[in-house]
């Protein structure tokens, strides 16, 4: 006999619908992440000036690595803060 759908292994259907995060750089076809582009980079440094983790921003690993480098370069020339006082 067929079971009702809700009782399938894996539990009942999720209650909340979470929108799938997408990588901004893949979607908008931004090729190079440049350390001079403060406007772009500052979207990924929240208030405390830490680099936003991938699980929150949804950036893919490839672009997160590039973003990391760019932010660190920008920090060393005082375009972005290391920490907010």
């Amino acid at each position: 006999m067929a079971r009702p759908r809700e009782d399938k292994p894996g539990g009942p259907a999720k209650q909340y619908y979470r929108r799938k995060k997408v990588c901004k750089f893949c979607v908008e076809r931004i090729d190079g992440i440049n350390y001079k582009d403060v406007k772009l980079l500052s979207q990924f440094v929240p208030e405390r000036a830490k680099i936003m983790p991938r699980r929150i921003s949804g950036v893919c690993s490839h672009h997160q690595r590039q973003l990391n480098d760019a932010i660190k370069k920008a920090r060393s020339i005082a375009l972005l803060p290391f920490a907010t006082e």
Binding site: L79, P81, F82
Partner: peptide, 14 residues
């Protein structure tokens, strides 16, 4: 001239 993100040798802009 731009504002610096943090103080560099006591300067706030450069």
């Amino acid at each position: 001239k731009r504002r610096l993100a943090y103080e560099v040798s006591r300067f706030r802009e450069a």
